Amino acid sequence: MIPKKDIVNCKWKPALMAGVWITSCLLLLFLYCLPFHYQQSPFATALSSGTQHPVFSHECYRNSATKIQNNCCRLHKYSLADIVTCSEGFANSSAISTPGNGRRYPGMNNERDWKTEGLHWVLVGDSRMRQLFTDLAARLSPARALYRVMDLKSGKWKPSKNLLPLLLGETGPLHSNAEVYLPDAPLRITFYWDPVLEYLPGLLRGWGDTAPLPSILVVNSGLHWIVESAEAFATGGRGVAAAPFSRAISRLVPELDRLSADTPVVFQLIDHVQESRNTAKLQQVQSNINIDYYNDILTKAVAGTNITLWSSTVCLSDLYIQECTENPYLHDSQKLWMCQDGVHVGYVMVIHYVRMLLNFVCNRVLGLGRGFC
């Protein structure tokens, strides 16, 4: 047992028994069962411009001694109907912008893009980004959603009726691109498997040229860079090991910033890991101190740009890790808790990550009013 403590301004006393009671529930049912409470705060208009947004800032998740709570603004709990309404709203809106910056995003409301593509969310990154896509795909599954997976060797999309089991790793991890499409909205969400962001530059060049702009781009990277740098870390230290990552991000950020003039771009920081489950080879390089070093590189790289930094998941991952430290065998078939997985948080936390994302994209469209994020 480790003492409860304030971790990066986040405090949590998780309702552990509630998590155990619902392990027999389906993931979709759980989305609407979790009894977390959100409270309105006088800071509802804070941190709403530039690279800061109250949904994504770790500064807004503090003083929450018993619940996960955003103290800057209210988070709406999205139903499937809300997501459909959000998607339809973009078709009828003449000016969609993120809160506080007053800019229009053609990728979100361009009439040509809507008729040919609908609302198109793009998620690019590693297995943690795949978890966000998995939760979104699960939310859409009751609405006659269509799924497909790309054969990376041929570059061709193939229909998939069993995408969710693939995403949940029931037959091994899915290291491929995947997509879910909801014709009735219409809404398309694409996940690109790109853990070191080697394919993202090509996507950026194509958007607006040969392909319509995405409605929103969410990116993460870092953990694979860290693992692959183990030898360089052992021989040259942290700075030498992280240098290739730093150079790659420095080249990528200007391209992302250019896209952000037309489409919201969100860069998610690297969640912490359960260090006790690291292999001997990764004990030092995959430490949370080293992860913070990479997160610092990302934070400095996007400073002064229009890229939105998503930092709140780091402190929430600490809260999840703390519970797993005290209950190391906490695990269930629905993967709400995955304490034996040292790298990924369980879906009990991923649900909250996706809730943040939905609030960022859809709150203005739903017209929820003052106080909401």
Rank of each mutant, 00 (worst) to 15 (best):
P3L: 12
I7N: 11
I7M: 15
N9D: 12
C10V: 12
C10R: 13
C10D: 10
C10S: 14
W12Y: 13
K13R: 14
P14Q: 07
L16G: 04
V20W: 06
I22A: 14
T23H: 09
S24E: 15
L26K: 14
Q40D: 11
S48C: 10
S49M: 09
S49W: 08
P54W: 01
S57M: 05
S57P: 05
N63K: 12
S64V: 05
I68E: 06
C72S: 00
C72R: 06
C73Y: 01
C73F: 00
K77L: 12
S79P: 10
V84N: 02
S87D: 03
E88K: 15
G89W: 00
F90N: 00
N92D: 12
S94T: 15
T98Q: 11
R103C: 05
R103N: 06
Y105S: 08
G107N: 07
D113R: 15
T116Y: 10
G118A: 04
G118T: 00
G118M: 02
V124N: 12
S127Y: 01
S127W: 01
R128I: 11
R130K: 13
L132C: 07
L132P: 00
T134G: 02
D135H: 10
L136D: 03
A138W: 07
R139A: 13
A143F: 13
R148V: 01
M150H: 03
L152P: 01
K153D: 10
G155K: 06
G155A: 05
P159C: 08
K161M: 06
N162C: 01
L163E: 03
L167Q: 00
L168S: 08
L168A: 10
G172K: 01
P173V: 13
P173D: 12
Y181V: 11
L182N: 05
P183G: 05
A185V: 06
P186A: 03
T190W: 00
T190I: 04
Y192H: 12
L197I: 07
E198K: 12
Y199I: 02
G202S: 07
L204H: 09
W207E: 04
G208S: 04
D209Y: 09
T210R: 09
A211F: 04
L213E: 09
P214I: 04
P214V: 02
P214W: 00
S215P: 07
N220Q: 11
S221I: 05
I226V: 07
I226Y: 00
V227N: 06
V227P: 00
S229P: 05
A234E: 15
T235V: 14
G236Q: 05
A243T: 09
I249L: 15
L252V: 04
V253D: 10
L256V: 01
L256I: 00
L256D: 03
D257R: 03
R258P: 00
I270F: 04
H272K: 11
E275N: 04
S276F: 03
V285G: 01
N290F: 13
T305V: 03
N306H: 15
I307S: 08
T308G: 04
W310Q: 05
T313A: 02
L316K: 02
C324F: 08
P328F: 03
P328K: 02
H331V: 14
D332F: 03
Q334T: 13
M338W: 09
C339R: 02
Q340L: 12
G342Q: 07
G342D: 05
G346W: 11
Y347K: 08
V348W: 13
H352W: 13
R355W: 08
M356R: 14
L357T: 06
N359V: 01
F360K: 06
R364Y: 02
G367D: 06
L368E: 06
C373H: 03
